[in-house]
Lab assay of single mutants.
Amino acid sequence: AVSDRLIGRKGVVMEAISPQNSGLVKVDGETWRATSGTVLDVGEEVSVKAIEGVKLVVEKLE
């Protein structure tokens, strides 16, 4: 699937994400809805860990 190529890629949070609410991330110039187990603020760099349906699962870049 086209989304599989995104796993491991870096992105930037465009709309804040929390465990309760999905947000938006931009990866390779495309905007995706994303979820995370932690709070991520706009502008934070993330990496794509998995894909669930049409949402990316991301975590903060260390």
Rank of each mutant, 00 (worst) to 15 (best):
V46C: 06
D4C: 10
K55R: 10
G53Y: 04
V46L: 02
A1G: 07
G11Q: 00
S18Q: 08
E15H: 09
K55L: 15
N21V: 14
K26E: 11
E59M: 15
S22K: 05
E44D: 12
L24I: 13
D41S: 13
A50L: 05
V54E: 15
A16L: 09
S3V: 11
E15G: 09
G23C: 02
A34Q: 00
R5W: 15
V48H: 00
A50V: 04
D41F: 15
K10L: 07
V46F: 03
V42S: 06
S47N: 13
V27R: 01
S36L: 01
K10V: 09
E59Q: 11
V27I: 10
A1D: 15
G23Q: 01
E30Q: 08
K60P: 07
A50D: 07
T38P: 02
I17E: 02
V54M: 09
S22M: 14
P19C: 06
G29P: 04
E52N: 09
V27F: 03
V39G: 07
G43N: 12
A1N: 07
T31M: 11
S22A: 12
K60W: 04
G37P: 13
G11N: 01
E59I: 12
T35A: 10
K26W: 10
W32R: 03
G23T: 02
G23A: 02
M14E: 08
L40E: 02
T31F: 13
D4K: 05
K26N: 12
I51F: 08
V27G: 01
A34M: 01
V57E: 04
E15S: 13
V12Y: 15
V58C: 05
I51Y: 09
W32C: 03
V54Q: 10
I51V: 09
R33K: 12
R9K: 11
K60I: 05
G23L: 03
W32V: 03
V58H: 00
G11L: 01
V42D: 05
G53P: 03
T38E: 11
V54N: 09
A16Y: 13
L40W: 04
S36H: 02
M14W: 15
K60H: 06
E45N: 12
G29V: 06
G11R: 00
K60Q: 05
E15C: 12
E59C: 09
E52Q: 13
I51W: 09
G43L: 08
L6Y: 07
S36Y: 02
G23M: 03
E44A: 12
Q20L: 14
L24M: 11
L6N: 03
V58L: 03
V27K: 01
V2S: 10
S47Y: 14
S18L: 06
V54A: 14
L40H: 09
L6G: 02
K60Y: 04
L40Q: 05
V13W: 01
D41Y: 15
D4F: 03
I7C: 04
R5G: 10
G43Q: 06
N21Q: 12
P19Y: 13
W32M: 04
V13N: 00
V39Q: 12
V58W: 00
D41E: 12
E30N: 06
A1V: 14
S18H: 11
T38M: 14
T31N: 07
V25F: 02
V25D: 00
K26A: 12
G8E: 03
T31C: 05
Q20I: 14
G37Y: 15
P19E: 06
G23V: 02
E15Y: 15
I51N: 04
D28R: 05
S22Y: 15
R9M: 15
Q20T: 13
V42M: 07
E62T: 14
L40F: 10
I51A: 05
G43F: 08
V48K: 00
R5V: 14
L61D: 08
R9I: 04
G23P: 01
L61F: 11
W32G: 01
V25W: 01
V46E: 00
V2Q: 07
P19S: 09
V42P: 09
S3W: 04
R9C: 05
R5D: 09
R33Q: 12
L40A: 04
D4I: 14
D41L: 14
A34E: 00
T35R: 12
G53N: 06
V25E: 00
L6R: 04
S18D: 09
A1P: 11
E15F: 15
V13Y: 00
A50H: 06
W32D: 00
V54R: 05
G53Q: 04
S47M: 13
E15L: 15
V54T: 14
V57A: 05
V48T: 02
K60L: 07
E45Q: 12
A16P: 09
K10N: 08
A16H: 13
R9W: 15
G53A: 05
G11Y: 01
S47A: 10
G53I: 04
A50M: 07
I7F: 05
L6E: 02
A1T: 12
K49F: 13
E15I: 11
V25C: 05
E44S: 13
S3K: 06
T38S: 12
V42Y: 06
I51M: 08
S47I: 14
P19G: 07
V12M: 10
E30M: 09
L6W: 08
E45Y: 14
K55G: 12
K55T: 15
W32F: 07
K60N: 04
S36W: 02
E45H: 14
E59R: 09
S18E: 06
E44Q: 13
